[in-house]
């Protein structure tokens, strides 16, 4: 069985007829062709596929595409479109505070968990009461996003740095 869907992906409407069982992550990768969102497991454990749904982080392997019908989805490509694709250093200056903090704190190595991590942290910071985020809260908040390269040390440092910038960090 197939159905027609329209999802606003990074601000652009994407309409397609897909199989009912299509997961949101497959819609993003295979229908919309946005490959920045990765798949790292099949049990909703790793968070590599994390995207923002109406501004809040979700694991796109755990949602049917149909559940995103008519809603706003932001992937890594849409977090700071003005920053370009990384090839222009001047544009890269315009990265989102979380992306910049990852760069400045060496929060990524192989890069596979990175899009999901960045979006999970952006959402964590966005949802936090001002002045409340500390290391423990960040570590707990990232329990569902796995990384094999960094030992999380610099990811947590990046999250704290970004949280300080936005005022979410504990004062």
């Amino acid at each position: 069985m197939s159905l027609e869907l329209e999802i606003t992906l990074n601000g652009k409407k994407v309409a397609a007829e897909v199989e009912e069982r299509t997961l949101l992550v497959h819609f993003i990768r295979d229908v919309a062709g946005l490959k920045g969102t990765n798949i790292g497991c099949d049990t909703t454990s790793c968070g590599a596929c994390t995207v923002l749904l109406d501004g809040r982080s979700v694991k796109s392997c755990t949602l049917l595409a149909a559940q995103a019908e008519g809603r706003q989805v932001t992937t890594i490509e849409g977090l700071s479109p003005e920053a370009g694709d990384g090839s222009d250093p001047a544009a890269s200056e315009r990265m989102h505070p979380v992306q910049r903090a990852f760069h400045e704190n060496h929060g990524l190595q192989c890069g596979y968990c990175t899009p999901g991590m960045v979006l999970a942290i952006a959402s964590l910071i966005d949802e936090a009461e001002p002045g409340t985020l500390d290391e423990e809260a960040i570590r707990l908040g990232l329990e569902g996003n796995l990384c094999r390269c960094t030992g999380y040390h610099n990811i947590v440092a990046a999250a704290l740095a970004a949280a300080r910038q936005t005022g979410a960090a504990r004062r």
């Binding site: 920045g36 920053a83 694709d85 990384g86 990265m95 992306q99 990852f102 192989c110 596979y112 990175t114």
Partner: peptide
């Protein structure tokens, strides 16, 4: 020295075999 590799991974993601 900060990594030169980073901006691509942070803005559009890496290009892995499956991509």
């Amino acid at each position: 020295v900060l990594r030169r590799e980073d901006p691509k991974f942070l803005t559009v993601g890496g290009t892995y075999v499956g991509d």
